[in-house]
Design a protein around this nucleic acid. Sequence first.
DNA 1: GCCGTTTTCGGCCCGACTGTTTTCAGTCG
Length: 572
Amino acid sequence: MVSNQDVAAVFAAMADILSILGEDMHRIMAYRRAAENIAALGRPLDELWRAGELETIPGVGKTLAAKTDELLRTGRLEAYEKLKSQVPEGVVAMLRVPDVGPRKAALFWKELGITSVDELEAAAQAGKLRGLPGMGVRSEEKVLAGIQALKRRSGRMLLDTASELAQALLAPLRDVPGVVQVAAAGSLRRMRETVGDLDLLVATEDAGPVMACFCALPQVEEVLLSGPTKTSVRTRDGVQVDLRALPPARWGTALQYFTGSQAHNIRLRALAQERGLSLSEYALKREDGTEILCASEEEVYGALGLPPIPPELREDRGEIEAALAGALPALVELTDLWGDLQFHTTASDGRGSLREMAEAARAAGLKYALVTDHSHGLGIARGLSPEGLRRQRAEIDQVNCALGPAFRLLAGVEVEVRADGSLDLPDECLAELDVVVAAVHSSLQQSREQATARALAALRHPHVDVLAHPTGRLIGRREGADLDMEAVLRAAAENDKAVEVNSYPARLDLNDGHVRRAVELGVRLAIDSDAHGVEGFRLLRFGVATARRGWATPADVLNSRSVDEVLAWAKK
DNA sequence: GCCGTTTTCGGCCCGACTGTTTTCAGTCG
């Protein structure tokens, strides 16, 4: 079967080849935009295809719809095969080298017959690049450095890692004299599930000292480039960090620009043009050259006739159209969460006692939390038997007595869904619990049919209330189950079951695209910390961010409701 | 290749930094 990712990859690859062939850059951009929007689609492409709605995807017109049709029907695309035959694969691979773009890749290929990154490295080492037009010794050195960087490039960071690194780098900058404000922007501020580079922003009238301080930070291994307002470095961990400094009066346009995404900015700047304005990180400029300075992002969007668009939505996935129509969702916020529906204790694989975890949940501002230790079937997590669950119930009652009425522990379990879809706890045991969370942790290599049937069986089980981390993915470590997510979400909606948005940074499962589809289908979401220690409740902000990226409002979220409402719903 | 309350053709965001250049092209975000 041809997946969304397959189609997106083909269009992205076509864009790369077209760029080396020197095609019109706007045509190339069109391929890239379509690829991105298809990759981010929360629903299967072949569904839109069957409904004849391919052209409803932003950036997909008649031509690309026809190409998508050909791919879905035949599994291949004639135009792509033709392009591939014109440019060697290794030449396209050279685009991955920092500071090597389409023009230089084409130059190395055409002038020196270089058709791979390895050959490029050898040519640079032999001093063969410096004689090419537009190249010199410095450029040759940059190519070599770029290849080294490519070889030891660390993958994208998880959100908590990126967040901690950003705070560690920003703290000393905040103390530089003259600095008014600092912020992490870029994909971290948009809360994309992983972060490649960090983008830091500083408001100051005097950028010099900030740049100097930044370059001298202990985490910095190499300064990649440095100008009066912009510096890029690579840290010892191999992370590229870009720092930009602008005057406080321009903070709004600067933060807007540096938050991105690039696709969102391009759309916004085009919108500005339609209104006779030019938008940059410095200001909105009228046609007569006068500037409108914006100290806040609200002013930027306001000047364009738009309500402020939350950073999590800024991906050019319909947010600008929604803003224009006054139809932006009022996104769920961390403070909307009254409870948490998954955490663990020392009774299974957690590190905190029931009492410690309850106090931590209360300290995190929650009014209730569901204890969900693993069931005994999950051997590695020392799960609970029916007997163990009964004993835990007594302990829960004790803690509730001790903590008083302002906070309440609920009795639950994270029951294992076996490979055949059955649960590893008997019905009478599940019936005694307040809320039952079901999840898959093993046999993740099942076929799509088996994996989907397994999830559907769990959702149809009368005692199951929440399906936790449906795909079971661990970002960067393992792919999740191959699920027909559309079928899973529809089953959740039909059976009035909740589906989890797991806040653990390596999970974020459902992901943003699936959340968006779940919201469209009216599926209840449970944003859970999955805390395994007292500090774990802090992770909820990442789950909330993922839900926000999927356009979820408080009404879509089960645990934004009171404990009585949740219990009544689970009883039904 | 997409797209349209000024357009079905002619536009398509805007600027920093670098290196190789005498005014700019390439890359990046």
